[in-house]
Design a binder for these strands. Structure first.
Lengths: 219, 219
DNA sequence: CTCCATTTGTTGAAAATTCAACAGAAATTC
DNA sequence: GAATTTCTGTTGAATTTTCAACAAATGGAG
């Protein structure tokens, strides 16, 4: 646990928690870490929604798969970011998504009950954690709004351009690297992969953008 | 304010607040109510994100309009429900959506600062409110997941059926009334209205459902 | 009750997406 | 370093959506 301290400190859940309290608190919360190899399932749809996950190393993806096997990527998450917190906080029985390791990962799991309820002495830390959870959930809501704004466009081109503009805005530059390969980008934008590839080619020929694999430049 | 007390008590923000404290608290929070006629804008995109809104009477819709004027409905909200709380809690400068009155409405507005920060005496009520906000945001996240699950389907038919199944599940019956007219349903599902009407007609002829305006029955 | 505005359903043509299949490029494995 | 797997781009056909325009049905105002 010690070796991940720098990552953990950056997790929005622990904002405002003094460094020297962090480890004790993690013990008190019953935090445990697990390792997952690439493509392994960290949480499966239908699993109990008890745990909040925090990515320590590597990266993961939140996905939904429907009856027909269509995969839809809800978001990608990297070190110090949280996942499944909404389901744990909502105290629903089972999670409606699947979380898979995008590369080898170390994941910290915290039983959300310990944050929300199990505090006999109503200590200030729990209040801080709850405040942090609220803040995090509010920010996650904004990401959902963004995704809906992108995927509500009717054409592959418009979805792609909306996504690329958000990425450019996020890093503050016209050159950036996206966290998805082609299939994953298609699953995030909710379009057909081959159609997406074709559209990228067309935009390149039109001089709208340059791209090489995951690297893009808006012109 | 007094006359809306029953509605206000049902608002998830005030869960666990004793009745006899409610009015005082509302005063302390600087809550104010405003009336809006049908189709009027309650909050416009770009407005400061200071206020949490609570619907007292009537109903409203959260919408996004893109460059081309395409409207996308994010959700509909009715009495005792909150809106814009995510933007206020995230403490971003401006809201990214527009809220319009779907019918004549009375709306209560609360400056979120007063909930999150301005409490000198760290009273238990504020902690409760923050906990309630967290809970509400977690539940709202589930609604977003649901909307994405619906709109990620590739055909109008699949989107419509996914939506109707969720509605049926929600009320626990195969007969239900939806809160949208045809154009609004199309804007929620992010499809073309005429195509949606055609698809409903086809499903009816196939014996999959019965429908009369906003009333549906799955067969 | 009548007129007017809104909502809904229908249609056909144009545009876009999806689907399946394949080939070359790139990356990984042994 | 060779073989194998994965990823990416391309294509054409089939399906579906969008778009525009119109008529019927509905609802409200005066």
């Amino acid at each position: 646990m010690q070796k991940y301290l720098e990552i953990i400190k950056q997790c929005p859940l622990f904002e405002g928690i003094a460094d020297d309290h962090l480890l004790t608190m993690l013990g008190c919360l019953g935090a445990k870490t697990e390792h997952f190899d690439k493509k392994y399932t960290i949480m499966a749809e239908g699993n109990p929604a008890k745990y909040i996950g925090i990515v320590l190393t590597g990266s993961a993806q939140i996905i939904q798969i429907d009856y027909y096997g269509n995969r839809s990527i809800l978001s990608g998450i990297g070190p110090s970011e949280m996942f499944a917190e909404a389901f744990a906080c909502a105290e629903i029985p089972a999670i409606p998504v699947t979380v898979i390791a995008n590369e080898p990962c170390d994941i910290m799991l915290i039983n959300c009950d310990h944050i929300l309820h199990t505090c006999q002495n109503n200590c200030g830390f729990h209040q801080q954690l709850i405040f942090n959870l609220m803040k995090d959930l509010a920010l996650k809501t904004l990401l959902f709004h963004q995704k809906i704004e992108i995927t509500s466009k009717r054409t592959t081109r418009d979805k792609l351009m909306a996504y690329l503009f958000f990425q450019a805005k996020k890093v503050g530059s016209n050159r950036f690297t996206i966290p998805f390969d082609r299939q994953e980008l298609a699953d995030y934008l909710e379009v057909d992969r081959s159609g997406l590839s074709a559209e990228i080619g067309k935009l390149r020929r039109e001089g709208v953008l340059e791209s090489h694999k995951k690297q893009f430049e808006l012109l």
